[in-house]
């Protein structure tokens, strides 16, 4: 499993991997927002948590179609399916690798972009915490979507269409935590719900993803 994880990470960091893609997209979106809504700092500080969450979500979405497609094309997915490792574990490792290469960098960059968007000082901790808790769920859900569309020639648009409604609860609770953190109000409930979604998806969705992958590999 660790070997698989290392391999995925190595591939992602290499040229043509998905590593820089999500990050660059996140950067572009957040930098473009002030140009589109205007430079008033009061307005920016209100929408900052939401914009950062949305940017992170879209960046995740962008990198999803490479998550399994490359392994599918060169046939290593078939090898992995016949390997002694259960497919559920393979899928879980794939999600983890995706999170490490996409989710984690986003979380680390988010405070920097928060400064540019005039995020209130109280908001930084909770922004990072909410992203740290929420992005794994995005990766796991995304893996499910990627597993469904893996056999399709041009699955990118379909993947977005399938994954988008599945992202709604995570986005709502995550952005809620960040927003309440920024305004300094009580945020225990959305935080717990966000954590609940993440843990539940991590625990259950790999089974669904593996089942779907098995159908696609048939």
């Amino acid at each position: 499993m660790i070997a698989l994880l290392l391999r995925d990470l190595k591939l992602a960091f290499r040229a043509g991997g998905g590593f820089g893609l999500g990050l660059a997209f996140f950067l572009i979106v957040t930098v473009l927002v002030p140009f589109s809504v205007g430079p008033q700092s009061s307005l920016l500080s209100i929408i900052a948590p939401g914009v950062l969450w949305l940017g992170a979500l879209l960046a995740c979405l962008l990198s999803l179609d490479r998550l399994l497609a490359l392994d599918w094309e060169d046939g290593s997915l078939d090898l992995l399916a016949t390997a002694p490792l259960p497919l559920e574990a393979v899928v879980a490792v794939k999600s983890l690798a995706h999170w490490l290469t996409t989710g984690l960098p986003l979380v680390l960059v988010a405070p920097l972009l928060g400064v540019m968007l005039n995020l209130p000082e109280t908001g930084f901790t909770w922004l990072v915490v909410s992203l740290l808790i929420g992005t794994p769920a995005l990766s796991v859900i995304g893996t499910f979507g990627a597993a469904i569309t893996v056999g399709l020639k041009r699955g990118g648009l379909l993947l977005s269409l399938l994954v988008l409604p599945l992202y709604v609860p995570t986005l709502i609770f995550g952005a809620e935590v960040a927003r309440r953190g920024a305004t300094g109000t009580e945020l225990e409930t959305p935080l717990l719900l966000l954590a609940g979604i993440t843990t539940a998806t991590i625990a259950l969705l790999p089974f669904a993803s593996a089942a779907v992958l098995k159908i696609n590999l048939r």
């Binding site: 499910f144 409604p165 709604v168 609860p169 709502i172 609770f173 409930t189 719900l193 669904a208």
Partner: peptide, 17 residues
């Protein structure tokens, strides 16, 4: 199946939101 679970989840999330 997965969508049903998430649809119910969204319903409550949206209410909350």
């Amino acid at each position: 199946l997965v969508g049903s679970v998430f649809a119910i989840l969204s319903r409550y999330a949206v209410n909350f939101w």
